[in-house]
């Protein structure tokens, strides 16, 4: 690691003021940032640790929605009775991230701010039509992820929470990389108040909605209706783990399994 200064602000305002420095980096759970620093792929002048800001932690109900603080760990979401009873698919997804030690540190805010193409949470944020709440504004989940490791966040903007509306039915299925547990392809399917949503992670540079499947499932919510929907491999990721063609195939398989799991 290159050397850096370390700050642990007690307030969101202090953290935001420091984050306005473009050479600084925000540290949430550190499950991606610290390995990145160790490989000298980043050279921030300062790390701003959000671990000391109490208001960023915790899970609460607001109306029918579940609001999860940005610094809430995956293990806490997976174990939350509130999440489990309101949106069980979200608790399932959190429990599938990484391994237990990673889930004890990694946070929802860190995961979505990083916008790894193979991360799990982006599928839930888009699949449930969630809203990302920052210290400046509210960003619809559909507009949040803008590309490979790119989000709508502005410099100095800090995610404070994510608001998830409940779904009538929802399920997440992923084909995991057996070494990293990242999604080679993960598909989140939900029947929501705003219609059926099918969000795909791992396959492309960023999470995306499979609109053809959404249209078919809106007419009839059963795995058979998407059997013949072909996902194009154009623009999908291709690496040593899976070709674009294989990922395209997996999108169909994972989507059907997710619909089946919805019951």
């Amino acid at each position: 690691m290159y050397a850096f200064e370390y700050q642990k602000p007690k307030s969101l305002a202090d953290a935001a003021a420091r984050a306005a420095n473009e050479d600084a980096k925000i540290l949430a759970g550190g499950m991606t940032l610290i390995p990145t620093l160790k490989q000298r792929l980043a050279r921030p002048s300062e790390l701003i640790d959000l671990g000391g800001i109490a208001e960023l932690k915790g899970i609460r109900k607001e109306g029918n929605d579940v609001v999860i603080g940005a610094m809430t760990r995956h293990a806490d979401v997976a174990a939350s009775d509130l999440v489990r009873s309101t949106i069980p698919a979200l608790a399932d997804l959190a429990g599938m991230i990484g391994d237990p030690a990673v889930r004890h540190r990694g946070t929802i805010g860190g995961s979505i701010a990083n916008a790894d193409p193979a991360a799990d949470y982006p599928a839930a944020v888009v699949g449930l039509g969630a809203t990302v709440i920052t210290n400046q504004r509210q960003i619809p989940g559909d507009d949040f992820f803008t590309g490979l490791f790119e989000t709508a966040l502005e410099p100095g903007e800090i995610i404070t929470a994510v608001r998830f509306p409940p779904a009538q039915k929802a399920a997440y299925m992923k084909f995991r990389n057996p070494a990293s547990r990242y999604a080679i392809v993960g598909v989140f399917v939900a029947q929501t108040a705003g219609g059926v949503r099918v969000a795909v992670t791992g396959a492309g540079p960023s999470v995306f909605r499979q609109k053809e499947m959404e249209a078919a499932l809106s007419k009839s919510f059963s795995p058979d209706v998407i059997k013949d929907v072909k996902q194009s491999p154009d623009g999908l990721n291709s690496d040593i783990h899976a070709s674009a063609e294989y990922r395209a195939h997996l999108v169909g398989v994972m989507a059907r399994r997710a619909v089946e799991k919805c019951g």
């Binding site: 370390y6 642990k8 540290l27 550190g30 610290i34 640790d49 540190r105």
Partner: peptide
């Protein structure tokens, strides 16, 4: 909680 000590800074453990 079990944590990987190679992926957390000492200063985070204050």
């Amino acid at each position: 909680d079990s944590v990987k000590s190679c992926t957390i800074l000492a200063v985070q453990c204050e």
